[in-house]
Every structure is written in C-alpha cells, then in structure tokens.
Design a protein around this nucleic acid. Structure first.
Lengths: 231, 231
DNA sequence: ACCTGAACACCGTTCAAGT
DNA sequence: ACCTGAACACCGTTCAAGT
C-alpha cells in the first residue's frame, strides 16, 4: 500500500477517457454525461480530462469515432446493392448498441477519419458498381443519416393519463379528431393497443425504406439517369 | 407616465411567450435561447415565464406548434402523390424560415395537436388515394422526419486551416486517403472547390430523395403490396 | 508532463414572499 | 392572479498552482 492509486486511476489517456465516456453514456444516458460525472467515474478531478480532450465537443467527436470503428466491414465479392445494404445494416447494429449515438452523430459539425472512411467506402461501392459520379452524389444525399443505419422516427405519442376512465375518454376524443392515425396505429398493433403507434418493428421499417431507396437507385442507374436531363 | 410599463411588459401570456421565443431563436440561435435570455427580452424576471409554460420542454413544444401552424395546406383536387408532395414541400418552406426548427422537432417526445393534424392529413391523403392501411403505415415510417420537409444531411467537413500552404497540404493528404469523396465533391462544385461537399443544392437533393420514395410508394401501391407477402 | 482547487459565468427550477 | 428575489444544485471552462 505504498500508493493509494487504483487501476482506474492509473494511465489516464485519450482512449481510456473515450471508452469510459461511451460506457457512462450507455449506463446513464447521454443527457447525464457531463465532464464532471465522467471525471468522477474515472476517479479524477474534472479538469484532468482537459489534458486529453480539448473540450466537450471533442469528447463527443471521439465517442463517435469509437462507435463507428466497431462497424463490421461487408463480406467481399458482393454486388454494389448487397454491399451497400450490408454495410448500412452493420452500421445499424453498431449504433443500436448505443442508443444515444444517433443523436450525437447528428449533432457533429466535423467529420473524424473513421466517419470519412465509412463514407469513402460507400461511395467506392457505388462507383465500382458502375454508378456515375453524378448519380453517386445524389444517392449519397438521399441516404443521408440512413448511411449510419438510423433515421429519426416521428411518431410521438401524447402522454396517457394514469386513471383508466380518463384514459378511455382521452382515447375517444383522440379517435374523433385523428381517426386515420388511430386506424393505422391499431391495425398493426397486436399486443399493445393502448399506446398509439406502439408495437412497430423498427428493423422492418428501416429495411423497408432502405430497400425502396436501393431499388430506386438501381432503376435510375439502369436508365443512365443524370441530373442534367432531369433537373 | 403614471406607470413604468411599456407595451412589451403588458399582457404576458402563453402566445406572446411562444412568439417571443421563436423570434429570439431566429435571432440568436437555439443554443442561446434560455429561460433567462427569453425573460430578459420580454422585460420580465425568469420566473414570470413559469406561469405560462410549465418548463423549458413545454416551451420548445409550443415553439414547434407555432411553426407547424404556419404550414400552408395543399391545394384541393390534387391526386395523392401531388398532395403529399405539396404538403411536405410546404412544411419544408415553413421549417426553412427557422433554421433551428428541425433539431427541436427531432427532440420532441410528445406530439402537440398541430403536429398530429399534419400526420392525420398525410395519412388521410394516402388512404383517399386507395392505399391500404398496411402500406400507409410503412410509407409513413419511410417518410420519417421527411414529412416535415427536412432530413439531416451528413456531409460534415474538416475545418480547413487558415494558412494557404497548410490548406493545400491538407487537401493533398485528404485526396490521397479519400479519393472518392474528393472526386464526388469537386465534380458538383462549380464555384467553391475549396470546401469539400460545398455547393450542394439542398432543395434539389431533398426533392430527389422525396420523389424516389414517392415513385416507390406508387409502384408498391399499384402492385397491391402487403407486408404479409413480403415480410 | 500531468493533475488539482478555486473560481467564473452560466443553466433550469424550487420556494416563499410580495402586489 | 400574476410577478419577484433569493437560493439550490447543477453546467463547461479559465487560471494559477501544485507534484
């Protein structure tokens, strides 16, 4: 016991800071991740972190790097459509392991090398598949954040009252004003009829839209589409 | 001068609070909008706001309401495809007037009535066009935040150094590692070759992806697609 | 070279008090 | 009924100082 240092206090470096930040965000959520809570978990004073990341923005940049580096590369030998599909679904698997990640990726203003690697790889796949530079450009835009395996779903639900009578009354009022939403929400929900929009299969919806886009890309590619003719 | 009150201090109410918040966010950006800065602009102490909105989350909810209420309804008599397209592009025009709006919409956990009205209207349009409940459901998911006229573009650029020599060196290094990104970025940019990905026409890219999806929807609809057969 | 302690200028929100 | 003032428990980040 010549030193009070534990393993968690030794050898603080950028990598250890980033991994601890990812683990902390996984545990307590991104909104509870602060320079102070992170320092506490590392057994260190807040200012010690600033020797390894310039500020909180750089910390978040680094956290994205860690996650994107986890994306498995697609199997070799697939055609462009399969390769793109596989890479995007692999990104999705990585991102789904960290529920806060999509929000952080969307908030980044600068790309780190791993992020650019992912984009470069997708572009190269389209080009290898014979896509023109022009079509590749628009197709990458059309993917948008979907290239990371996520898109923001916009089906927020009003908070249901705890009291059953009040809940029933609210449902009736809701159904009167929004009959189409109710019709759609209840048609798909087999187990949970109480929550509007509940019971959706996110993975299915993601692949539905992705395949719709990929099929559209294929069609334009086969037709020799250019923005000059269309725009 | 019997009273020191100015027009800006009289008759504080929810509507005036929300409109002031929207104007303030337009002026100084959403990150500089705080309960304190908003109170100051209204000539009032921070706590005065809490009589009109329960907390900051509710303030943001209300700001979304104000903006969504501005969306022009589509002209009557259009077919489903035109009506959906028009409504989404109208939403885009409203959202573009407030550059912070997309970020705030994505962060909402509860839908306000005006938000539900917009969704109800889109769903009703698909149904009136003969779409099955099933297909309508998936199609709404595929639109995602695009139903609000925006999608997050993911083409962040590394910050270019101020020094011209350093910038040239960085560009060369970048081009060596990311040749496809450079190829694509420079092909489309006519005026600004210095910034990677600069010179993109966001409106064109938005409509490109939207039309690709709408064409896909149309094709599935004509084929009588159901998730039971496909899934 | 790396970590610390105290301080600064902010937040959102509470509570009890004023008018 | 509506607004105020002071306080609480947080933030990210600075600076000068320690080892």
């Amino acid at each position: 016991m010549s030193s009070p240092e534990t393993a968690s206090r030794r050898a603080l470096n950028r990598d250890r800071v980033l991994r601890a930040a990812v683990a902390l965000a996984d545990d307590v959520g991104i909104e509870a991740l602060s320079m102070r809570t992170l320092a506490e978990r590392l057994g260190v004073v807040p200012m010690a972190l600033y020797k390894h990341v310039a500020n909180k923005e750089q910390l978040l940049d680094g956290m994205v790097e860690v996650i994107v580096a986890e994306i498995e590369p697609p199997a070799a030998g697939a055609d462009w459509k399969d390769a793109v599909r596989q890479r995007i679904l692999a990104a999705r698997r990585s991102l789904l392991r960290h529920r806060w990640a999509s929000q952080v990726i969307e908030s980044r203003t600068h790309a780190s090398p791993v992020v650019l690697d992912h984009m470069e790889s997708l572009i190269a796949t389209f080009r290898a598949g014979g896509f023109s530079i022009d079509l590749t450009h628009h197709v990458m835009h059309a993917l948008g954040t979907r290239m990371w395996g996520f898109t923001q779903e916009v089906f927020p639900t009003p908070a249901p009252p705890a009291d059953p009578d009040a809940r029933a009354a609210m449902f009736e009022q809701f159904a009167a004003r929004y009959p189409r939403i109710i019709e759609m929400a209840t048609a798909g929900a087999h187990e949970e009829e109480s929550t509007v929009g509940g019971g959706c299969d996110d993975q299915f919806e993601f692949e539905f839209a992705l395949d719709l886009l990929l099929d559209g890309f294929e069609r334009l590619h086969e037709q020799g589409w250019t923005s000059f003719r269309a725009g």
